[in-house]
Each structure stands twice: as C-alpha cells, then as structure tokens.
C-alpha cells in the first residue's frame, strides 16, 4: 500500500475523476477526506465535508476541520461551452471562481498546515495548453492552474511538492453529454477515438493512477511539472488527413 499513513484531501470528490482518485487513495491505504457542493453521496466510503471551493471563507473554515494533511488534490472544476464574446460576468465568476480561485483558495488555506514533504496535485488540462473551441474561460482557467502549480512548487518547495495532471478526453458524464449533442453520436465517438494513438478515451482510473504516484514517496523528486495523460492525442497534429 503506497499511501499508508497519509491523510489526503480531494476536492470535487463526488463523481468522475475526483471519485476515482478518492477510491484509489483509499485502496492504497490513505485516510481520505473529500469535499463537494452538497451532501455526502450514497455509498461513499471516505469522510465528506460540504464545501464550495470558490468561497474563501468556507475554505478557511474547512481548513480548521481538516487539520494536518499530507496530500491535497485540487480536482473540483466546472466546464462551460462558450466563446469569449458569449461569456457573461456570471459565467466568469462561475468558471474562474471554481477552477482558478478555488485552487488558489485551497492552496492558500492548506499549505500552512501540510506536513513536511506533502504533495499538492492540481487537475489542469490539455485545454490549458492548446485550445478547445468554444471553451474560452475553461481553457484560460486551466492555464491559470498550470501557472499557479509552478509558483507553488517554486515558492513552497522543498516543504511541499506541487504538480498538475493534464487530462485529455476522459470518460465521464461530461464526455458522454458532448457526444449526445452530435448529429451522429456513434460516428463522432469513432472519429474522436481514431485521434488517440492509444485508440481509446481515458478512464478516471487512468488519472487516479498518476495521482497515486504523484502523492506517493516514489515521486519525491517530481515538482513543478505538468503531466499530460491524453492517450497521445496532443502529440499528434490536429490536422489528420487520414480522417477526412
């Protein structure tokens, strides 16, 4: 068990990638606390606190409950499909509030009470490096996460390590909803899979596997980096004449 004796806090632990990280940490022996907006989900093994990470005061209150932590995973995030011109002030507050300010709130409140050698794992995105169309605020919020990851690593090492995982297309409810909007969902899915050298989408457990490694002492020399897990998608040009 690679995380025995460690206490971990995972934001956005209700479903998808966050839930997979909670389960994987638990299986590796960690004591896990997860948070999300709303009540504890049914059948949830780990401890749960209701928390909206975009609220700085609520995050400070949560910090007092949490005590010393070895691992913090900033996974909570929202996605909005709009261009810059279509995005309202409320959209900005919603996306940037959770994805950017939420990560900042959690880092600011929890770094002082992390154990020496603790690890922060932020969930960035390939969208923070290359643009997904009509996802302007999401893309920019993930680029913020990448920048903050480097700053935390530089400013708070060696006490704390900080890395980001940049997932590509991961099989979550969000991905399925995207294909349901396509004119021919089956064809859209086939096309998308063909653009992955590994010929499948990622699973939440793929991301959780890297989170376990980054949280473990095996990763004690890893800090300040963005680790992309996308089945090879962004290693290839977006232009693939073989698919025309």
């Amino acid at each position: 068990m690679r995380l025995s004796g460690k206490t971990a806090f995972v934001t956005g632990g209700r479903s998808g990638i966050g839930r997979a990280i909670v389960d994987a940490f638990h299986a590796e022996g960690a004591d896990v606390v997860a948070c999300g907006r709303g009540e504890q989900p049914d059948g949830f093994d780990a401890r749960w606190i209701s928390l909206d990470v975009s609220d700085p005061n609520a995050v400070c209150d949560a910090a007092r409950i949490l005590g010393e932590l070895d691992v913090v995973v900033n996974n909570a995030g929202v996605q909005l499909e709009k261009t810059v011109v279509d995005s309202s002030d409320e959209d900005w507050d919603w996306v940037v509030g959770t994805n950017a300010r939420g990560v900042f709130n959690v880092c600011r409140a929890l770094i002082p009470q992390m154990s020496l050698g603790g690890a922060i794992i932020n969930i960035g995105s390939i969208s923070g490096t290359v643009a997904d169309p009509s996802m302007a605020l999401y893309n920019a919020s993930k680029a913020f996460v990448h920048g903050l990851t480097r700053s935390v690593a530089v400013e708070h090492g060696p006490a704390v390590r900080c890395n980001a995982i940049c997932p590509g297309w991961i099989e979550t409810g969000m991905l399925k909803a995207g294909f349901d909007l396509a004119t021919d969902p089956k064809k859209a899915e086939t096309d998308a899979i063909a653009r992955h050298p590994i010929r499948r989408f990622g699973k939440p457990s793929d991301i959780a596997a890297m989170a376990v490694w980054l949280a473990s002492d095996d990763a004690s020399f890893a800090t300040g980096q963005m680790f992309t897990l996308d089945g090879g998608m962004t290693a290839a040009s977006p232009l693939n004449p073989g698919l025309f």
Partner: peptide, 11 residues
Amino acid sequence: GLSAQVQQMKL
C-alpha cells in the same frame, strides 16, 4: 493557428 488547438473532432 493550427497547433494552438486540440484535435478537431467531427462532432
């Protein structure tokens, strides 16, 4: 701008 974007899936 080709490489500024991710893969352009046909959706």
